[in-house]
Nucleic acid binder design. Structure first.
Lengths: 151, 151
DNA sequence: GGGAAACGGTTTTATTTTGCAACCACGTGA
DNA sequence: TCACGTGGTTGCAAAATAAAACCGTTTCCC
């Protein structure tokens, strides 16, 4: 996806190189919403067919989507692989920030609901395994060239 | 940033319209790492100056960065606003997925460490306020046109 | 089975975005 | 003051994206 490789030691940069463009992110969002077929993506996104084709190819090549035969049809479905499904947190992050910062109070938007009960999902936050919340000030990034003990 | 407005009821789409491109995301990443000056961004990213200028302008217009006078200089700093700082989860999501899926076992990469102790931050996961972990299968998206009670 | 429409693309061509290099005014440092 | 760094802008070339036409296959429907 990326022209020139970005900082090769930064996981953020590597992810951005793979999914860091408008259409890829929206395709992945749709995939989480159950969109599977070429024409469904096209209608949902209003994307040109040629660029949809190249994006799907890239995402398949990247192991994020898998093309598999569609049930009861000779066409194929594009479905999230496990690797793709693990982009869930990323889509949630996009969604939550969008809810918080791009809608006026009364404005309607789609919401996450519990698959069983249909109840809205409360706001999610990042925590460590022991339940501690982490915010931006709590951490910093240690680059690979910095000292810091073995691994 | 976006040519044609995407689905106006989807918070994911709105966020993608604002920060859903390679350079904006990397600029925001750098901002979290303490980069503040035009030339620092330029050197860190290897980005052309004209496109850096337009991206910074967009991010300032979007309220994600703020241009403020640099301490002890007549130049200015670009610093994250509160709105921008709340993109922290998004950058963490990019980072964690990148760590998990774009590095081979032995390969070195930058890591998040505790600002105080310098210890690596354990893997973060999304939880509800009562501590429940949420995964992709647990939820679905309810679109605005679907019924679902008031609001 | 036959015709029409939908599907899943590819190709061609136009438009937009990006990247590069040169340039420039202002600040700063020696 | 003289050179260099900063923070851009401008003009041009290259690349990515978008729109439209086209095309073989599949499915729908009678």
């Amino acid at each position: 996806m990326s022209a020139r490789p970005t900082d090769p030691t930064c996981p953020v940069a590597r992810t951005v190189d793979i999914v860091g463009d408008r259409w890829s992110l929206l395709i992945i969002r749709d995939a989480f919403d159950g969109v599977r077929r070429f024409s469904q993506f096209q209608r949902s996104l209003g994307i040109a067919k040629n660029i949809l084709a190249t994006r799907l190819r890239h995402l398949v090549d990247a192991g994020i989507l898998r093309a598999e035969p569609s049930a009861g049809s000779s066409y194929q479905d594009y479905v999230l692989t496990d690797k793709g499904t693990e982009l869930f947190d990323l889509i949630v992050s996009l969604r939550q920030w969008g809810q918080d910062h791009t809608f006026t109070p009364g404005e309607q938007h789609s919401v996450l609901v519990d698959a069983e009960t249909g109840q809205p999902v409360p706001r999610l936050s990042y925590t460590t395994p022991d339940g501690t919340h982490i915010r931006a000030d709590d951490i910093r990034v240690r680059k690979v060239h910095e000292a810091g003990g073995p691994l």
